[in-house]
């Protein structure tokens, strides 16, 4: 009897905690989405309006803009390729750092983070000149390269700590069965750290999807990504509030789909780990 009571109290407490978490994280999102359906007058109503007559005019302007599809396409290409580059290169390096003892490995892995410590603003002017002379400005590959560079320190460090969690014995078992190092990496280790890979992939994707400063200044009309397109609604005097909120709502959809896909993988990785142990 007492235990069921305790359980009930715990369940109720749990419910409130979860509800509070939802409200904190979701209220601003709700406000963004609802703003995208508000006329400008309703968006700035004093006091704020909960109930309003919805409009889809801002979605219509987004979707009827011929540039918009091109922009989504750019963002998808650049983000997708960046993630592949970051994960493949990052996993190689991370594996080397996790499994090999060699002189200067700590210094080298640490020096990668240093690359991320500079405020991006100071890189802009020299990178602009460099990209100009390499003809990389306003190209997809240019942005992919620079996003990969910003992603790699994180990917390497993240994956390194996941690799280190895999007992070396599992790998050795595979070697005894005749697998080469890289084969063992692909067949035994990567499936084991799938949750880590998935998490890392999500962050690499989000960085590329949302990066603004470099996409704006090193990119150009041929590479306009969603955040750059979005910022085009900031005028000299005015902010096209509704357009920004509608476009941002659309921009949230592809990464949400990605995470939902990866979510499956996260759970699979979990069960796999349990079976393995």
């Amino acid at each position: 009897m007492r235990t069921t009571n305790l359980k009930r109290v715990r369940n109720i407490a749990m419910f409130f905690v979860v509800a509070a978490v939802w409200i904190f994280y979701f209220f601003p999102i709700y406000w963004m989405v609802s703003s995208s359906f508000k006329t400008r007058v309703d968006t700035f109503a004093i006091p704020p309006k909960w109930i309003f007559w919805p409009t889809i005019q801002f979605y219509l302007t987004s979707f009827t803009n011929p540039k918009f599809l091109k922009v989504i396409q750019n963002s998808l290409i650049i983000t997708g390729t960046t993630v592949v580059f970051s994960l493949v290169l990052g996993a190689w390096a991370a594996y080397a750092f996790a499994r090999f003892r060699f002189k200067g490995s700590l210094t080298l892995s640490f020096s990668l983070i240093v690359a991320r410590m500079m405020p991006p603003i100071v890189f802009i002017v020299p990178l602009y000149l460099l990209f100009n002379s390499l003809k990389l400005r306003n190209t997809h590959i240019g942005l992919i390269l620079i996003f990969t560079v910003f992603n790699l320190p994180f990917t390497v460090w993240m994956l390194k700590s996941f690799f280190e969690e895999v007992p070396i014995e599992l790998e050795e078992a595979a070697w005894i069965d005749g697998a080469s190092r890289l084969q063992a990496l692909g067949r035994v280790i990567l499936p084991l750290i799938a949750p880590g890979l998935a998490a890392t992939a999500v962050f690499a994707a989000l960085l590329a999807w949302n990066e603004f400063l470099f996409a704006l200044l090193l990119g150009g009309p041929d590479t306009t990504t969603l955040p750059v397109f979005l910022s085009g609604f900031l005028g000299e005097r005015d902010v096209e509030w509704g357009d920004i909120m509608a476009t941002a709502t659309v921009a949230v959809l592809p990464p949400t789909l990605l995470v939902m896909l990866v979510q499956q993988n996260l759970i699979k990785g979990l069960t796999l780990g349990a079976v393995k142990g």
């Binding site: 802009i124 002017v125 602009y128 000149l129 100009n132 400005r137 306003n138 704006l216 200044l217 150009g220 009309p221 306009t224 750059v228 397109f229 910022s231 085009g232 609604f233 900031l234 005028g235 000299e236």
Partner: peptide, 25 residues
């Protein structure tokens, strides 16, 4: 013609970088 929309603050940055580097974009 190709009209490139940028946030207003950065129109200046972009134009300035373009003129400063003489790239003629």
């Amino acid at each position: 013609t190709e009209w490139e929309n940028n946030p207003y603050d950065q129109v200046y940055d972009k134009t300035f970088l373009d003129l400063g580097s003489q790239s003629g974009t």
